[in-house]
C-alpha cells in the first residue's frame, strides 16, 4: 500500500505545491491535500496557538489538525532561504516544531530544510533524505527531483506568462483545466494587489478579494504575475529597483510587487496583510509610501480571524469609487 502523505493547503503550498506533488508522486506516494480553508478550521487552528500569532500560521495549524487523522505522514518543509542573504520569515522556520508541539495526534513529519547559504550539497542531502522515505534507489530520487524542478519552473512560467493566479496555475498543471477567460464588463481599471499568496489566494482568508474585484470589472495583477528579472546569481527575482533591497524571502510578494505596480502605473494598489504579520507590518508601510509618492491610490486591508466580510466589501467599493471619481476629475481637466 502506498504511503499517504498529507500536504496542508496553507503557507508554502501556494508556492511549491506542484513541485512537492511531482516529487512525491514520482516516488509512489499518495498525496492528500487538506480541504479548503473554512471558518471552523481557522478557529480550531487559532485555539492551539497564542493569540498574537499571525493569521496564516493559525490557518496552517488548522490544516495540519484537519489532516492529522487522514494521512501516514505530513510534509512540512522548512524553507530558510533560496537566495543569498535573503531569509524567510521567522515563523516559517519553526513550522514542523510548532506543529509537533501544538497539534494533538500529529503524524510523523517529513521535514527537510532548504537553505541557500549551505550550498548545493546540503540541498542534495536534504532531497535524498526525503526521498529515502519512499525508495532506496538514489537514481529514482534524482529523477523525481529533476521532474519536480521542471514542474516547478513550468508552474512559475505559466503564472507569469499567462497572468494566472497561483490557484489557476495549479489547476492548469494538475487538472489540465484550461482557464476560460470570462469576458466580464471591463472598464479598464487595473489594480495591483500586494500580499502573500497564502493570504491573497486563500478565499476564506482574503474574503474573496480577487473574485470581488473581478466581478466589479477590474483587471487585477497579483505578485506572481510580475515578470522575473534575473538577479546576479541568475535566479529569477522580481526587481526591487529603488525601493528596498530584499530582506525577507516572503516579502517579494509585498515590496517586489509594490515596486512593479508603481513602475507600470496601475490605477490603484491594494495591500492585503494578515494581522500580526511581522514582516508586513514594516514592508507594507514602504509600499504605501512608494505608492503615495507616485500618486497611486493605495488601500491597506488587514485580515484576522474575526474580520467581518461586510466591512471588507464596503471598503473595496469605497476604494473603487474613489479611483473612478479621481479618474473622471482628471479627464475633465484634460
Amino acid at each position: 500500500m502506498s504511503c499517504k502523505v498529507g500536504i496542508p493547503r496553507a503557507l508554502l503550498y501556494y508556492k511549491y505545491f506542484p513541485m512537492w506533488k511531482a516529487f512525491l508522486e514520482k516516488l509512489g506516494a499518495e498525496i492528500i491535500v487538506s480541504e479548503n480553508t473554512n471558518q471552523k478550521l481557522i478557529l480550531q487552528g487559532a485555539s492551539l496557538v497564542v493569540s498574537d500569532t499571525c493569521l496564516p500560521v493559525k490557518v496552517f495549524i488548522g490544516h495540519v489538525l484537519s489532516l492529522s487523522d487522514k494521512c501516514d505522514k505530513l510534509l512540512i518543509p522548512v524553507v530558510r532561504s533560496t537566495s543569498e542573504k535573503v531569509y524567510n520569515c521567522s515563523r516559517f522556520l519553526a513550522l514542523p516544531d510548532l506543529a509537533r508541539a501544538v497539534v494533538p495526534g500529529v503524524p510523523p513529519i517529513l521535514e527537510i530544510e532548504f537553505d541557500y547559504s549551505r550550498g548545493k550539497s546540503y540541498l542534495y542531502r536534504q532531497i535524498y533524505s526525503l526521498g529515502k522515505n519512499f525508495t532506496i534507489n538514489p537514481f529514482k530520487i534524482k529523477a523525481a527531483a529533476l521532474y519536480a524542478w521542471e514542474t516547478h519552473q513550468r508552474y512559475h512560467e505559466i503564472t507569469a506568462q499567462q497572468h494566472l493566479t497561483r490557484l489557476e496555475a495549479i489547476d492548469l498543471i494538475h487538472n489540465g483545466k484550461s482557464i476560460t477567460i470570462k469576458e466580464t464588463k471591463n472598464d479598464g481599471l487595473t489594480i495591483g494587489i500586494a500580499g502573500h499568496p497564502y493570504v491573497l489566494h486563500d478565499e476564506q482568508v482574503s474574503h474573496n478579494l480577487i473574485k470581488r474585484l473581478k466581478a466589479a470589472g477590474v483587471n487585477i495583477l497579483t505578485p506572481e504575475m510580475a515578470p522575473e528579472a534575473p538577479d546576479s546569481n541568475g535566479n529569477g527575482h522580481t526587481q526591487f529597483a529603488g525601493l528596498a533591497k530584499n530582506y525577507w524571502e516572503s516579502e517579494e510578494d509585498v515590496v517586489g510587487a509594490g515596486d512593479w505596480y508603481t513602475r507600470i502605473k496601475v490605477d490603484g494598489i491594494i495591500g492585503i496583510m494578515a494581522f500580526a504579520c511581522g514582516p508586513d507590518s514594516m514592508m507594507m508601510s514602504l509600499v504605501q509610501r512608494q505608492a503615495h509618492s507616485a500618486n497611486i491610490p493605495f488601500m491597506s486591508l488587514t485580515v484576522e480571524e474575526h474580520t467581518a466580510e461586510a466591512g471588507i466589501v464596503t471598503r473595496i467599493e469605497a476604494f473603487l469609487d474613489m479611483i473612478h471619481r479621481a479618474r473622471r476629475r482628471n479627464e475633465q481637466c484634460v
Binding site: V49, V50, D52, S90, R91, L98, R100, V102, G278, S281
Partner: peptide
C-alpha cells in the same frame, strides 16, 4: 514584545 515572531513561536512550543 506583542506580535514578536520568534518569542511567539517559543511561547507556543514551551508548554510541550
Amino acid at each position: 514584545p506583542f506580535t514578536c515572531m520568534p518569542e511567539g513561536t517559543a511561547q507556543c512550543i514551551m508548554p510541550s
